[in-house]
Simulated scan of single mutants.
Amino acid sequence: MDASPLDLVFEPRLHGETVQQWVFRRLRRSVMSGRFPPGQAVTIRGLAEALGVSAMPVREALRRLVAERALVLLDNRRVRVPEMTARRFEELVTARTLLECEAAARALKIADAPFRRRLVALDRASDAAVEANDTEAMIETNLAFHAALYGGRADNVLMPLIESVWLQIGPFMRMALADLERYYPVDRHAEALAALAAKDEAALRRAIEADIRDGIGHLLEKLG
């Protein structure tokens, strides 16, 4: 049995989506948004029961998540989030910074008025989540804002790489949010939106780098 049931992200099954595809998408999103607590082992059986499916699609989804370095296999029935060292965390934060600053800069070419309005709406939703102290909404709206900023093209190469980093760093987001007021005094999303409107690439890169540093980079102090 699992130590405690996971609160998995709710993702409705899409039209034409197989059970296997839906299970993988839902588990992947759950890892990315921090629903798999660091150190807690979960079983295939427990996840299958939570999802209301057989063990087979869960086993295949976990195999893929292990391949993406989001989880580690403990035995043939259990998985957990990989242990995090200060060195690995620093490398992940560096990778996030490099990839996301570049992706944001490339978004300048497509940042027309409708594009920016969508980001403004997502930023307002993020602000509302912070105001309500809703951890789940804070994580989801933050992911949505960044995904909308970086993922504007169907042939986007950087977004899958960014999501790979999010998968590995996501389980530690709740730890970062515990000190949000202390480490995140400036609205970096607002800075990014202003830079987009001004078509100022340097300012946009600075805003995204500061957003990552203030949002999660400070955890290096705890992991060091």
Rank of each mutant, 00 (worst) to 15 (best):
P57M: 03
R59M: 06
L62P: 15
R63A: 07
V66P: 03
R69E: 07
A70T: 03
V79T: 14
T85V: 11
A86F: 09
R87P: 01
R87V: 11
R88K: 14
E90P: 11
L92R: 15
L92F: 05
V93I: 13
R96P: 04
R96T: 12
R96L: 06
L99A: 09
E100C: 01
C101Q: 13
C101W: 03
A103H: 00
L108E: 05
I110H: 13
A111P: 14
R116W: 05
R117I: 10
L119P: 06
S126E: 08
A129P: 10
V130M: 03
T135G: 02
A137R: 15
M138Y: 03
M138W: 07
I139A: 03
N142R: 12
A144R: 10
A147P: 13
A148I: 15
L149D: 01
G152Q: 13
D155V: 08
P160A: 10
I162S: 08
V165G: 01
W166F: 02
L167Y: 01
Q168N: 01
Q168S: 01
M173S: 14
M175R: 15
A176D: 05
A178C: 01
L180V: 02
L180N: 06
R182S: 13
Y183S: 10
Y183P: 10
R188K: 00
R188I: 00
A192Y: 04
